[in-house]
Design a protein around this nucleic acid. Structure first.
Length: 297
DNA sequence: GTTTATTCCTGACCGC
DNA sequence: TGCGGTCAGGAATAAA
């Protein structure tokens, strides 16, 4: 399930191939993913060159010559695959890890790289929760999908005080607040669970309790901001190292198996050294939450 | 304005 | 082995 770290890893994997490449041809093998492709999507990409690829929250932004950008989202099952050369597409053994016969390869970009190699970039998405849209590059920040996104948990904008301000007045749970893309952009179910465990905070705690004017609340918001930043940074780092090992093997970009402390570990012992609790699962807002009832308060 | 429930989709998994 | 049911999840959308 691609959250911010996975999307950033995909971006880093695509960047050296896409940057400076010319889009020779675009194959759309169905009319839509989650949404219909923009009208004449292929035509608007073909013959353009790619100036660069950036990321905002869980969105990939592919910047094209001529002032347009592709806004791409991987949904929950989207992945990219890079195939060198033009003859290998028919080789079925390339598909074994992403599904049968490339059935869910919905988009194929035929590229000529800046050093004149012919490369195919395939977008595969079995559940089709992903999407691709077009937007004027100058207007990306105002695009409805991106305009109301909150702060990035990377960099230096998320810290105790800024987090406390975001949570002030929120009557919902800490878990739901951290999942809210309008507050912090890019966190999903997995890293929210992990960050709350690291900070020793209960997912059921009322969000605004971290915004109170007390030393305890300030410490908690600082601990949580630190936990969010470090869990994201470590996952990006882990994705980068996985990418180095993985990319040469088969060109796939998208899923990276990390080790989690609590996510999907119901019934396992809490990994905190001085805790003898057991990881539990509960459902909040229709989503599974994994946490340790012994050390998260 | 805030919060919650529903919807989209398919593959994996479980019990019978 | 096969069938039906359940679950997972991001974000738009509707509803409360």
């Amino acid at each position: 399930m691609p959250e911010l770290p996975e999307v950033e890893t995909v971006r880093r994997g695509l960047e050296p191939v896409l940057t400076g490449a010319t889009i020779v041809k675009v194959e759309l093998r169905r009319p839509d993913l989650r949404f219909p492709f923009p009208s004449d999507f292929a035509g608007q990409l073909e013959r353009k060159t790619i100036d660069g690829i950036s990321r905002r929250a869980k969105y990939l932004l592919v910047h094209l010559s001529g002032g347009q950008s592709v806004i791409a989202h991987l949904g929950m099952s989207g992945s990219f695959r890079i195939i060198e050369g033009i003859e290998t597409l028919a080789s079925s053994d390339r598909y074994h890890h992403v599904g049968k016969n490339g059935r869910h390869d919905h988009v194929v970009l035929h590229l000529k790289t800046k050093d004149n190699r012919e490369v195919q970039v395939l977008y595969n998405d079995p559940r089709r929760f992903g999407f691709m849209l077009l937007c004027a590059t100058a207007e990306i920040a105002n695009h409805p999908m991106l305009a109301s996104l909150g702060i990035e948990p990377t960099g230096n904008t998320l810290y105790g005080l800024s987090l406390a301000q975001l949570l002030a007045g929120r009557k919902t749970s800490l878990k739901a607040a951290l999942m809210d893309q309008k507050l912090i952009a890019g966190l999903g179910n997995i890293y929210v669970c992990e960050a709350l465990w690291r900070a020793g905070l209960s997912p059921r705690r009322i969000a605004s309790s971290l915004a109170r004017n007390s030393a305890t609340a300030r410490n908690r918001s600082t601990d949580l901001a630190t936990a969010v930043r470090t869990v994201i940074a470590e996952a990006i780092e882990a994705g980068g190292s996985t990418l180095r090992d993985h990319r040469l093997a088969d060109g796939s970009l998208g899923y990276f198996q990390h080790h989690f402390s609590v996510y999907d570990r119901e019934g396992h012992p809490c990994p905190r050294p001085d805790c003898d609790g057991t990881i539990r699962r509960l459902v909040q807002n229709g989503r599974s939450t994994f946490y340790c009832p012994r050390c998260q308060h």
